[in-house]
Design a protein around this nucleic acid. Structure first.
Lengths: 145, 145
DNA sequence: ATAGTCCTGTCCAGATCGTCAAGCATGGTG
DNA sequence: CACCATGCTTGACGATCTGGACAGGACTAT
């Protein structure tokens, strides 16, 4: 399904998605056309979902991050899910097993803003909020093996 | 600090980091050299931390994801932090305020593997694990305004 | 065995792109 | 008013990408 060359390509692109095809080809030991073809197929197969940039939220003015656990009140699950999706400051959210139904990450600028966002949720769910103090593990890939 | 053109550039690159400089320049309404210069400075200022790819973990064989909350036993905080960093299946982890000290995301293939990883942590911390069922909000940027 | 086919690779050439230098417009400042 | 700094454009050249033609190896059916 995914051979060593594909894994090498992915490994390189995770570090630098804007590398030229030529340099990428040199590093994997193929010609550029074949590398281009592999790239095309990795995209086609949705192994690579997208090429993107990692932007520092602080540079956008979001100095604070919180992890919010959300447990909708009875009957409120779908409304709460929609509410979460429509809150743009929630930059990722998973639906999980266990007491909490959703766990999401929230980017914000001030405590007032956090308060406002949580207030909107509080009408329809119990929430539990933890402020992020640091990130011992910054987003990375699991082993490619 | 960051003007409209910069935000436009970021917005476009988040969607497609491999867009050619020329196309990017056309979309923002500048010449390629000025666009290249802005790009260079966005990187230099670390607004853009890196260009990367979004890889589907399932394509790498990681069919399952869990969110793990970790509360180290007394005196174990630093050891636990190190242990988390050295567990490659933990693909992100934040240190947070509140009862839990760490909240991390774990990619794994089988329940046996999950069990093994959690067992290692369990010697030094209480853990609380939620399996991810779906992701109502896939990683996105907060508003650029 | 061998012929056919598919897959994945290479090489080459025309088309496209990135980068550099030079020069112009704008706005702030002595 | 002159000067400088900043940020833009243009044009040219070298580098890169892309599509087509072709080669070799693995698999299959005759």
């Amino acid at each position: 399904m995914l051979d060593d060359l594909d894994r090498t390509i992915i490994g390189i692109l995770v570090e630098d998605a804007r590398i030229s095809l030529k340099d990428l080809a040199n590093q994997v030991g193929l010609s550029s056309p074949s590398t281009a073809e592999r790239l095309r197929r990795l995209e086609e197969r949705k192994v690579i979902r997208s090429f993107t940039v990692d932007v520092d939220p602080v540079a956008l003015g979001y100095n604070l991050t919180a992890v919010v656990r959300v447990r909708p009140l009875p009957g409120m699950l779908h409304i709460v899910e929609k509410l979460i999706q429509e809150t743009p400051e929630i930059t990722e959210c998973d639906k999980v097993t266990g007491d909490d139904c959703f766990i999401g990450k929230l980017q914000f600028r001030t405590m007032e803003q956090l308060d406002m966002i949580l207030d909107r949720l509080a009408e329809r769910a119990e929430t539990n909020t933890s402020i992020v103090k640091s990130s011992p593990v910054r987003r990375r890939l699991p082993p490619l093996s």
